[in-house]
């Protein structure tokens, strides 16, 4: 029997190749995460071992990214730094996504005074320049990576609350939600089965894209001395330590810079792929 010609819609959907992109960037992100988990086993040298005789060496076969002013191998420090940078970013994004979404869904569903109050609080957070507010909070709480995460979380949740609220307001007026209410669904079932899956797309995409942004902001706070403390290997603090050597020993700055660039790019492109994949209209049954 002859196989029917694919419809225009199916051709367009197949052409978008979303699943392949998702798999590719998913694997790339997984590689970054796995390398962060097993970073200590992957390091060719001890990332904290100082060898002043080998200080400021150029990239070579022995030291692919060269060495810093204390003779520490930059490749080893970049690999070990991935654990701090990636996992602290994941923690931060998980906190702001969960908290912001919960607040946004609550506001969009409940509306009324609670919605007004919480949205004014979020306006207050959004009114401050982000990094300045984070600097102030980190300054009050003191330095350290956990305080940097708290400081950034305090200013970053309103974006998710705004998205979740607007999406919830839009979904709650749809016919399918009315149909679900008429099917006898409880509020928790409506939220968990109908609202969250339908608002998850933009939130998940924002969260994946925010991995890059938050990674840079955490690195920024570390760069300013309010994040990870030396000698902890963290990409932002590594750039901070070597920034004075940019003209003479540029590889020492480029190594963590390239690591940030690659990680940010992979998570941004993964965000795009996730967005395409989550749209059921982009899926075709086999």
């Amino acid at each position: 029997m002859a196989v029917p010609e694919p419809t225009v819609r199916e051709t367009v959907i197949r052409g978008s190749n979303g699943k392949t992109r998702l798999c590719f960037f998913g694997v790339m992100a997984a590689l970054l995460i796995v390398s962060a988990v097993f970073s200590e086993n992957l390091c060719p040298y001890d990332p904290y071992l100082q060898d002043l005789d080998a200080a400021l060496q150029q990239p070579s076969a022995a030291h692919i990214f060269g060495t810093d002013r204390y003779g520490r191998d930059m490749l080893s420090r970049v690999i070990v730094g991935s654990r701090t940078s990636i996992f602290s970013t994941f923690l931060l994004v998980a906190i702001i996504t969960t908290f912001g979404t919960a607040i946004g869904v609550f506001c969009g569903w409940a509306r009324g005074r609670a919605d007004n109050l919480l949205m004014r609080v979020s306006d207050l957070c959004l009114a401050f320049p982000g990094l300045v507010f984070a600097l102030a909070v980190a300054g009050v709480l003191g330095g350290g990576l956990s305080n940097a995460v708290i400081a950034l979380a305090m200013i970053s949740w309103p974006k998710y609350a705004r998205i979740a609220r607007s999406q919830t307001l839009s979904v709650r007026e749809t016919s399918y939600l009315k149909a679900a209410r008429l099917a006898g669904c409880s509020t928790s079932r409506l939220i968990l089965k109908h609202i969250l899956p339908n608002i998850a797309g933009p939130i998940l995409v924002t969260a994946t894209l925010d991995v890059g942004t938050m990674m840079m902001e955490l690195a920024g706070l570390s760069f300013l001395g309010l994040g990870a403390k030396p000698p902890t290997a963290e990409w932002g603090s590594m750039m901070s330590e070597t920034r004075g050597l940019l003209q003479t020993v540029p590889w020492a700055v480029f190594a963590p810079g390239i690591a940030i660039f690659i990680a940010v790019m992979v998570f941004n492109l993964l965000g795009d792929a996730v967005r395409d994949w989550m749209d059921p209209k982009m899926r075709v049954k086999s």
């Binding site: 399918y176 089965k193 899956p197 339908n198 059921p280 209209k281």
Partner: peptide, 10 residues
């Protein structure tokens, strides 16, 4: 609208 009365993700 029949299509809008069903959850697009289910």
């Amino acid at each position: 609208s029949p299509q809008e009365s069903f959850d697009p993700r289910r």
